[in-house]
Design a protein around this nucleic acid. Sequence first.
RNA 1: GGCGCAUUGGUGUAGCUGGUUAACACGCCGCCCUCUCAAGGCGGAGAUCACGGGUUCGAGUCCCGUAUGCGCUGCCA
Length: 496
Amino acid sequence: MNVRVRFAPSPTGYLHIGAARTALYNWLFARKHGGKFLLRIEDTDLQRSTEESTRSIFEGLAWLGLDYDEEVVFQSANAEKHRAAARRLLEEGKAYRDFTPREERSDANIKQEIAERARRAAAGAESKINPYRDLPREESDRRAAAGEPFAIRLKVPREGRSEFYDIVYGKQEREYAEIEDLVLVRSDGHPLYNLSVVCDDIEMGITHVIRGQDHLTNTHKQILIYRALGAPVPQFAHLPLILAPNKAKLSKRKHGEVVSLTTYRDRGFVPAAFRNFLALLGWSPADGKEIMTLEEMIERFSLEGIHRSNAIFNFNEHDPRQWTDPKALWMNAEYIHHMPLAELLPLVRAELEEAGLWRAEYEGERRAWFERTVDLIRQRFHTLKDFSGQGRAYFSDEFAFDEAAVEKNLRREPRLKELLPELARRLETVEPFTAETVERALRAFAEEAGVKAGLLINAARTALTGQAVGPSMFEIFETLGRERSIQRLRAAVDLI
RNA sequence: GGCGCAUUGGUGUAGCUGGUUAACACGCCGCCCUCUCAAGGCGGAGAUCACGGGUUCGAGUCCCGUAUGCGCUGCCA
């Protein structure tokens, strides 16, 4: 079978990480089976859809490295086709006109309203059976011709049950009696979601619908539409939801920027790392491997490996160290430490460019230096931002001193006021200026001065980098070079 | 309210057709290394597998019920 799947986000707000995961799974499935991964923007809710949001979807997918095949489909462009499909169903007697005056629903407490209405219906106060369902054709036509507004509803069988097999959740059943005749086209002529999705999926030749579990029960309705339209029904695979730590739905209003994919890009995540983390939120490979390249992920991916229980996205908004899931943070650091240097370099370059620290010579005569330096400092970094933050001193002479580091490594020992300039003086003649030679010189000096080498080393770390932590100090001397090292050792005296 | 789905340490997961000391990763704690650590190495604590009944020689694994959570139930998507 020729696999064709799609990612169909609605462009309202930023790209949610849950949606990003859905996109990833669809993409992995398509690539695994040599199929097509299509993109469809469901922009039929004109009120809420924004161009900015559409852009964030494109950017998000590109950032994650999820390329799509064929042309992007904008659902709004197909509205006429959707209406035509509904008209056809009307003609064939599979749908009917509902002349009930439209009820306005406020978005605010819509859920309670629905529950309340269902409760009344169950109590028998309101009939679930639409009075227009069996309106004679002639009368329906006459009223429509007279200009009376109507919605188009699908005729759902009164008896029997709907069944389908979900690849993730297994066999699904639902009594038709529990499904209300659903509206296909609004009385203002606007086609509704269930109709549009089905029509577009048919037209796009979708073979597998992989989407959030929130659509699981609605699938019965959609299958009814496929059948009515005489189209083959695709396979379905629903994905568990991603929940907040309190098990509530992850939402922008309540949880803020942690749910937005762009946040991760903006805060220095390596795309591959976040993609890797996302993949594991609701799916796991048979062999339990966690750190995977894209190829390894494609190789291992299967819909059967997707779990049924919702995943909790763990974070703590009161703890800056855990602004997002600790495992995501760990994984990002893991990637920065171990990914091929050649793949990291462009990411560091982009970060430095953004911070105004990039210099052309890093691609030219200083290229070897740049690569060595990045390789040296990456071992302690956790995000790409660290290259321009904590790592600023390696790329610029204007860098900030960490106050705690100054206190701990410089101010606590007044003798450093004399020791540092003397160390600088001695380094002037060290030849060649390498980690080994500097180490020898420094240790000899420490012994002569009667101080621990650690005192000078830690003081030098803060003097040269502004930080209390970092790579092996002698490597830093070599990387920064004699001139800068000496200059910074002397300048540090003012801080003591 | 009705219907559906889920439930293994704090979190993400493994545990296939019933027999394991319930496994792995993150996090947490401790130790080691050391010139620092938000690095690295080593180790530890933490789960009566939501609860209650069954079936069975034996159940995290099968059945029933309960609870909790989530989802759907809309002329939103």
